[in-house]
Computed example of a mutant assay.
Amino acid sequence: MKILLIAGGWSSERDISLLGARGIQKALTERGHSVTFFDLLEGFDRLLATAVGHDFAFINLHGAPGEDGLVQALLERVGCPYQGSGPAGSFLALNKAAAKQVFRQAGLPTADWCLLVRRPDPAWEPPFGWPVFVKSNTGGSSLRLGRAASRAELDAVLEDILATGDCAIVEPRLAGRDVTCGVLGQEALAPILILPEAGDFFDYTSKYANGGARELCPAPLDAATSAEVQRLALAAHRALGLEGYSRADFILGDDGSLNLLEVNTLPGMTPNSLVPKEAAVLGMSFADLLERLIDLGMQRYGR
């Protein structure tokens, strides 16, 4: 199969995208596919012309463009199949404030939030009190994420986010542990418990630095809690109208409660990333997982 591997792009997560693409290209080539590496940053204006000559596009982009559905919409214009969700589901999931509205409408547990599109008035304070977590509304990879215990600290985090042209989403600090759960097809995978070692929350350093966090898969949780994580991950996937695969992130409270943080439509795809670790529990190699994603994408097009 002739596969167009789309990576890079120009979001703040470009380097992570390129890192994952190297492993994807190697694995697919070893499986006998002809893989064309396509850096969206350098070739965006040639995307449609290039896609026409390929059987399938494998998208390994993080942030926008990519997770916002733009690339998917373009590929659909020329009938090029791809893995994962379509434009609408991708766009809803990337926008955290929009996704949280969908979660609430579907009865899924998610923390209260405020969307800040500009620096608020000096007297403004979050309605749920301090401390809070502040993050880019459309960013990922735990970039531009911070905790604030005062208005001064909030303004410092906001300055970095708003300077990029993005909005900020503010949520109360939830005491607990990070749990994540992937969905493949219509099946929830084994949850992973994440224990940061380089800080007290799962930021960029914890996620990508050597020894930054312990990722326990399957998560050492009781059967009922694991089942509830899986149920909510699959429910969030369906509520957003997603396809192929996704990964939902949660906070497991000290009281056993679960709060849905966000859903990723193009989760990290290196052999050591979270979804590949979950797939390995099912006996799937990294290459097997890639082939399964391709199969699901082709099925979507009836091919």
Rank of each mutant, 00 (worst) to 15 (best):
K2F: 00
I3H: 07
L4W: 04
I6N: 08
A7F: 08
G9R: 13
W10G: 00
E13H: 08
E13N: 03
I16A: 03
S17F: 05
G20P: 07
G23P: 11
G23F: 09
A27E: 13
T29Q: 13
E30K: 14
R31G: 00
H33R: 07
S34K: 10
F37R: 13
D39P: 12
G43F: 02
L47F: 15
L48I: 04
V52Q: 15
A57C: 05
N60D: 10
L61F: 11
G63V: 02
G66R: 14
D68W: 04
D68R: 08
V78E: 05
P81M: 07
P81R: 12
L92Y: 06
L94E: 06
A97M: 06
A99K: 03
Q101I: 02
Q105L: 11
Q105G: 00
V117E: 15
V117R: 15
R118S: 01
P122D: 13
P122C: 02
A123S: 12
P126M: 01
G129N: 09
W130F: 03
K135D: 02
T138R: 14
L143W: 04
L145Y: 04
R151F: 01
L154R: 11
D155P: 10
A156E: 15
E159R: 13
A163N: 02
G165F: 06
G165K: 10
A168W: 03
E171D: 09
P172T: 03
R173S: 00
T180C: 08
C181T: 12
G182I: 09
G185M: 07
Q186I: 00
A188D: 11
L193W: 13
L193Y: 09
A198H: 11
G199N: 07
G199H: 07
D203I: 00
Y204A: 05
T205Y: 04
T205D: 10
K207V: 00
K207T: 01
G211Y: 14
G212Y: 11
G212L: 01
P218S: 07
P218C: 02
L221I: 13
A224D: 14
L232W: 06
A233Y: 04
L234Y: 07
A236H: 14
R238W: 00
A239S: 09
A239P: 03
A248W: 02
D249I: 05
F250C: 10
G253S: 15
D254V: 10
S257E: 13
L258G: 03
L258C: 12
N259D: 05
T265H: 10
G268F: 04
M269A: 11
M269L: 15
T270R: 11
N272G: 06
L274K: 08
L274H: 06
K277Q: 15
E278P: 04
V281D: 13
L282C: 10
L282R: 15
M284T: 09
S285A: 07
F286G: 05
F286L: 05
A287F: 10
L289W: 13
L290V: 08
E291N: 07
L296I: 01
L296M: 13
M298S: 08
Y301D: 02
